[in-house]
Design a protein around this nucleic acid. Structure first.
Length: 899
RNA sequence: GGGUGAUUAGCUCAGUUGGUUAGAGCGCUACCUUGACAUGGUAGAGGUCAGAGGUUCGAAUCCUCUAUCACCCA
């Protein structure tokens, strides 16, 4: 006999036993293209969003990876060749920063070491610490094919990056140009627009007057939040429609401090209502000004350098830009140019990694032309080739795609994929996949490679291809044939532009097909006060500590249960009590079932022989058994439907409700009673088989969410080798029509039990006192059902049960109630103050009669009767009839009591 | 300024195409530890479904406006 479970559930034991190393050594979660190509299995592929190699496990990862694991395990159990592709990304800025910081402690800068030696340090760091996140992910019990783990800097992935760059360049979609880009003065690199976070910031709006060169004593006043860039002004612009300034257009203004003469120009870009309506134009330090300057053929002057310090010729050089701002404001005041200063709150761009204000900076950078890529990528989402869950993200995606700007992909870093572009001695650009190829093209070996590296996302956007072994060079390998396009992508909505959109572009461009079919956007996790989790707030719980305290299964279950599709999640560690309690409940329910199995079956073989061929269809079922089997079928139906609709938290809800509400609270209670009362060995054996059968079904549907505890209990159902896994068991399917055909007798028994318990409680019948219950049922069929289940009613209510036909006069001094047209009486002789019962019945009668009034009004409404569908009207009529009959019975009870 | 979403019990949230006397968990109250489980069981209290209009025989559900909050993009 498979032994019973330990008396108490210990998640450390169970989760230790079925750990990742165990399954990895067995290859349990490895997927093979041969089983798809040569076998007839359908494939199902999930791409892990590569966590940052510098990262450590967060609750966001927990939610995200749990969801991916749920999808992959569900599909694996549903018979598909399920491949989950893991990996990490090299996180250019973050990693380089971490390593530089470490070196700085030893007083060494990357420039001291030189590029080659610095990169050796980074690789060393990565080998030492980069595996942390992967190790932590394994504690989540996730079922990826770890053999295929990929790092974006691996040779295959790097080759793919070079290939992608070269193809895009040759197709004219990559170019190099001098543009205003977002510059991070701390990391000293360019950033893409997406890496800039807009944050509200309080600044001073400074009003400055510029003297007009040809009109002594006259001024034009502008408003700016960046007075330090006045030194780089090349014009003052006004709106051509603005009557205040019309006659000033064409005049020359004198730049304060700098003394330069600049023109007053007219441009529609200027907002008449902002500030004074006159705008200083500083093309080197503002992208919009840059465009204005372009339209008017104005020069471009810079006064802020790479490190955010001034580089002007007017005495501020070397000052930080914010310091210079203060100083210049003071100087403007002393020179009489300062008109006034206003407090001003506006949105300012900060660099994502270093959290400093980005500086618009004019420099030579590499860009990807996005428009042609975006058009196709938008099309496949618009026409449903790729589906978003929840679908409202389509609008955000569309908006971005329709207003897309070119992607700045060069970074002034050392850690990353070096741009495969070389310059010859004339400065001509040669783009090729290798130095040799470039020399060949250029006809010289005197080439110098571009110093910059590519944006990390330039490798991430190839992730659906590189994880399957695409290097850009070969024909499709077997993995690509079998597993591309992938199926489901689970990711946070915060990287919809960074990653999701760009992968779609890359998939279409390089492979001619979408990279995935469904994108599930996860919830964003916040703390109990609704604040974003952040290290600086100290409000992000350490998932490993939560796992230690509550168990992985508990955390996984809880976080999915509380994460509704498309809404933020408020997480507090203590919420995991919910999942932990649920796990304990499962454990204890299984123990009960196994105890009963031990009692009924003598030997392991006897049980296993009967159980292995057992189906509910093959047994003759009691009312309770029919009912629970029907409920099980309904549960399976809604479970699979929820999966098909990506309603992941409903899945946990559906299983939870069935298990607790139906299986434990009702069915297992009746099982105990039936096994106690029944002397028929065959019936008992069938009863146990059904209980185990349903338990096994529950374990299977729960397994994608709680892999550990379900594995453990599954191994106690039959003797199974530790190399076997429930992960490869077949997912149960609902039997068509089962629950429609099954009589629902037990439902009325449940109602009688609940009502009787309620009567006992409301009247305070002492729990240790056996009461008696009289069921007066007018229908013969109802009497039959109650009779058949009388022993269950008795045990579950602590009442002796008498069944009478409907003519029974009310027993004296009885509490009463009505269920499905049957009257329940509970004689309270000598126990209870009757006022209490009278009060209760009066309240009840009030409720019912107000309901009756409403229904009568509704049904006498001509509009309703004429317009509503017949079955609705029928339904309302029968509700009214039921209510009236209940009301009559309650009133009769009242009369009896009052007399 | 443009867009997206939210507002239901003290708290966190369900409520599937309009047709229930609006549900759950946590918390609260009362009672219950002899054999699965107190990380539990049974019963109970608690809601004008943000506000105002509208559509409809009928609105938590559809429409409009308002308020508050959150996020995204300028």
């Amino acid at each position: 006999m498979s032994s019973n479970l330990e008396k108490t559930y210990n998640h450390h034991d169970v989760e230790g036993r079925w750990n990742s190393a165990h399954w990895e050594s067995l290859g349990t979660f490895d997927a093979e293209s041969s089983r798809v190509i040569e076998g007839d299995k359908a494939s199902y592929t999930v791409l892990m969003p590569p966590p940052n190699v510098t990262g450590s496990l967060t609750l966001g990862h927990v939610l995200n990876h749990t969801l991916q694991d749920i999808f992959i395990r569900y599909q694996r159990m549903s018979g598909r060749e399920a491949l989950w592709l893991p990996g990490t990304d090299h996180a250019g800025i973050a990693t380089q920063t971490v390593v530089e910081k470490k070196l700085r402690k030893d007083g060494v800068s990357r420039y001291d070491l030189g590029r080659k030696e610095f990169l050796e340090h980074v690789w060393k760091w990565r080998d030492e610490y980069g595996g942390l996140i992967l190790k932590q992910l394994r504690t989540l019990g996730i079922s990826c094919d770890w053999r295929r783990n990929l790092f974006t800097m691996d040779e295959g992935a790097s080759s793919a990056v070079r290939h992608a760059f070269v193809s895009l360049y040759r197709d004219g979609l990559i170019y190099r140009g001098k543009r205003i880009i977002n510059w991070c003065p701390v990391s000293q690199t360019a950033l893409s627009d997406e890496e800039v976070i807009m944050k509200p910031r309080k600044d001073k709006l400074v009003f400055v007057r510029y003297a007009l060169a040809k009109r002594p004593g006259e001024y034009i006043t502008i408003a700016t939040v960046r007075p330090e860039t006045i030194l780089a002004d090349v014009a003052i612009a006004v709106n051509p429609e603005d009557p205040r300034y019309r006659d000033l257009v064409g005049e020359l203004a004198v730049v304060p401090i700098a003394g330069r003469h600049i023109p007053v120009i007219a441009d529609e870009y200027v907002d008449i209502d902002f500030g004074t309506g006159a705008l200083k134009i500083t093309p080197a330090h503002d992208p919009n000004d840059f465009e204005v300057a372009g339209r008017h053929n104005l020069p471009v002057l810079s006064v802020v350098g790479r490190d955010g310090k001034m580089i002007d010729e007017f005495g501020y050089a070397g000052l930080d830009r914010f310091e210079a701002r203060e100083r210049i404001t003071e100087d403007l005041e002393s020179r009489g140019n300062l008109v006034k200063v206003e407090e001003y709150e506006h949105n300012v761009g900060y660099s994502e990694r270093a959290d400093v204000v980005v500086e618009p900076y004019l420099s030579e950078q590499w860009f990807v032309t996005m428009k042609p890529l975006a058009e196709k990528a938008l099309e496949v989402v618009n026409d449903g080739q790729i589906r978003f869950h929840p679908s409202h993200w389509i609008s955000t995606y569309r908006h971005w795609m329709e207003n897309i700007r070119d992607w700045c992909i060069s970074r002034q870093l050392w850690w990353g994929h070096r741009i495969p572009a070389w310059y010859d001695q004339e400065g001509k650009i040669w783009v090729a996949e290798s130095y040799e190829d470039a020399c060949h093209l250029a006809g010289t070996d005197k080439l110098v490679q571009d110093e910059d590296v590519l944006d990390t996302w330039f490798s991430s956007w190839l992730w659906p291809l590189t994880t399957l072994g695409w290097t850009g060079k070969d024909e499709d390998n077997k993995d690509i044939q079998a597993f591309y396009p992938t199926d489901t992508l689970v990711t946070g909505p915060d990287i919809i532009f960074f990653w999701v959109a760009r992968m779609i572009m890359a998939g279409l461009y390089f492979k001619g097909d979408v990279p995935f079919r469904d994108v599930y956007f996860t919830s964003i996790i916040r703390d109990m006060k609704g604040r974003k989790l952040s290290k600086s707030l100290g409000n992000s719980p350490d998932p490993l500590k939560v796992i230690d305290a509550y168990g992985t299964d508990a955390l996984r279950f809880t976080i999915v249960y509380i994460a509704p599709l498309g809404q933020d999640v408020l997480f507090g560690e203590e919420k995991c009590e919910f999942g932990r309690n649920f796990a304990t409940k499962i454990w204890n329910a299984a123990r009960l079932v196994f105890m009963q199995r031990e009692k009924v079956f003598g030997s392991s073989d006897a049980f296993s022989d009967l159980y292995q061929g057992f189906t509910p269809e093959s047994a003759s079922l009691s009312d309770a058994q029919q009912w629970i089997t029907g409920r099980y079928q309904e549960m399976l139906g809604s479970y699979h439907k929820a999966f098909a609709q990506f309603r992941m938290n409903d899945i946990t809800r559906i299983v939870y409700d069935f298990f607790r509400g139906d299986y434990c609270d009702w069915y297992l209670e009746t099982l105990k009673i039936e096994l106690d009362g029944e002397r028929d060995e065959t019936k008992n054996r069938h009863a146990v088989c059904l209980a185990v059968y349903l338990l096994e079904g529950i374990l299977k549907v729960l397994h994608p969410v709680m892999p550990f505890i379900t594995e453990e209990i599954w191994h106690h159902i039959l003797e199974r080798d530790s190399s076997e896994s429930i992960a490869h068991a077949a997912m149960p399917q609902a039997v068509e029509g089962w629950s429609d055909d099954m009589p629902k007798h037990f439902s009325s028994v449940q109602k009688i039990i609940s009502e009787t318990r309620s009567l006992r409680a409301v009247f305070g019948v002492p729990h240790d006192m056996k009461a008696s219950l009289v069921v007066s049922a007018p229908e013969e069929s109802a009497r039959r059902i109650v009779t058949a289940n009388a022993h269950i009613v008795t045990r579950m209510t602590d009442c002796s049960v008498t069944i009478e036909d409907g003519d029974l006069p009310r027993p004296p001094h009885s509490a009463s109630s009505v269920v499905d047209g049957n009257e329940l009486f509970m004689p309270l002789e000598g126990l209870i103050s009757f006022e209490k019962e009278i009060a209760r019945l009066e309240k009840e009668a009030d409720n019912i009669s107000s309901y009756v009034t409403r229904m009568e009004k509704k049904l006498s409404n001509k509009g309703f009767v004429d317009n509503a569908p017949d079955e609705v009207i029928e339904g309302e009529r029968s509700k009214l009839a039921d209510a009236k009959s209940n009301l009559g019975k309650v009133q009769a009870s009242l009369e009896v009591l009052c007399n």
